[in-house]
């Protein structure tokens, strides 16, 4: 964590709104990517972004700087997104059709059959991700969507590098099986 960020965090801890806005601007895309990666739904992802930052700023006094702030942010984002999905499973199902219609189409130039295929694939991906254990899903999102290194993932997930690699391996293997027909499975098992 650089001095600049440490200063910003200290200011946030003292309740400085401008510093909080800077932190928000710096991390909002990362939080959104994690959230969307997990829920595959725009409005839900935005709700998660809001929840994550409210949590972060309300508990920022507890941040002692023992770990990097970005790992603290990623961990909070992932836990919030996974909790969100868990709660959602218990209540209602999302209107995925509308969501996919609005956000998967690239505009009028895209052919309707392509839009339908994208929609179907995205629905399949969402279903497949939901079937992964939480730790494998977190590893997959951190690596495949957010592009974190193994070291960064280990810090964010609080585990060893070996565990990161194992979670990624089994997560990928399971996703390839679940998405058979949409994603090629590779030349070996």
């Amino acid at each position: 964590m650089g001095h600049e960020e440490a200063d910003l965090i200290s200011q946030c801890q003292m309740g400085d709104q401008a510093a909080m806005k800077e932190i928000f601007d710096k991390y909002r895309d990362k939080v959104y990517r994690v959230a969307y990666g997990v829920v595959r739904h725009r409005e839900e992802a935005m709700d998660i972004v809001q929840e994550v930052f409210v949590k972060l700023f309300r508990t920022i006094g507890n941040f002692k700087g023992k770990s990097s702030f970005y790992t603290y942010v990623y961990r909070t984002a992932m836990n919030t997104a996974i909790d969100h999905v868990r709660k959602l499973k218990k209540s209602t199902s999302l209107s995925f059709e509308d969501e996919a219609e609005r956000y998967l189409s690239d505009g009028p130039e895209k052919r309707p059959d392509q839009v339908a295929m994208d929609k179907e694939l995205e629905e399949k991906v969402k279903g497949a991700l939901a079937q992964l254990p939480d730790d494998q899903r977190a590893a997959i999102i951190f690596r495949e969507v957010e592009g974190l290194s193994y070291q960064e993932m280990a810090k964010a997930m609080g585990c060893s590098l070996g565990t990161v690699m194992s979670r990624l391996h089994y997560g990928r293997k399971k996703l390839q099986q679940l998405l058979r027909g949409y994603v090629k499975e590779g030349g070996k098992t």
């Binding site: 909002r28 959104y32 969307y36 991906v125 495949e144 996703l175 390839q176 590779g186 030349g187 070996k188």
Partner: peptide, 28 residues
């Protein structure tokens, strides 16, 4: 092994591309 590598690339693109598109469209 080439096919395995290709499969991992496809999986990554399948997971990442919609996220990339969605984040570009957002205003925060």
């Amino acid at each position: 092994c080439q096919a395995q590598l290709k499969s991992m690339e496809e999986l990554r693109a399948t997971l990442r591309t919609p996220v990339d598109k969605a984040v570009q469209k957002e205003t925060f």
